[in-house]
Amino acid sequence: MPNFVIDIAHMLAGGLVLLSFMMLYQDRLYALINVFALHALVLTLSVAWQAYIQNAPHLYVTAAIALVFKTIVIPVALHKIIRRLGIHRDLETALGIGPTMLAGMALVALSMVLMLRVTPEADPLAREDLAFSLSVVLLGLLTMVTRRNAVSQVIGFMSLENGLVLAAAGAKGMPLVVEISVAFSILIAFIVIGVFLFRIRERFDTVDVSALDQFRGERR
């Protein structure tokens, strides 16, 4: 495989990691959604590139799902929901931006050390792809735990899931990738529709830890 083919794959995967970092410091909800849309777009390119170099046409389906559903439909729907339900647009973070970024760097270092060490024999394409995707997964997790607002938790979860799709697409010849990405899309659609239908506005407005404890039968 020529080097530049691998380089492009790595560049796109690295771009995803970078965008995951960008999500960590957004303090406006709309901005966060826009960064997520960009994240999904880069995922689309990355998966499409994998489809091209692996000669695996079924991956184009996964790329198409990422493009239509995650880059367009979900961000538009979220914009609408926020406007309709009048959710606060400022985000509270549990940690300050500085510590969050440091934690993010530590997580990326961890996944690089871990994945590159255990996969010396795998082909270089899949190897670094896996390390990048684990970084995206862990950063998504970090986004979820440092946000108190439920919409941004959903976005954190979706970025985490993008990391998984990247890993699955990078594992050459893996079956069920398309099915898994469909299953994930259904899961997310379920949640987003649920948010809208149940109109759990207050739930999605003030989800901070102190309010949460109040609802746990224990401390009433």
Binding site: L130, L164, A167, G173
Partner: peptide, 14 residues
């Protein structure tokens, strides 16, 4: 769990 599943596949593929 999915990440673990992908890794098992990667281990099995060769």
């Amino acid at each position: 769990a999915l990440f673990g599943t992908i890794l098992v596949y990667m281990a099995a593929r060769p």
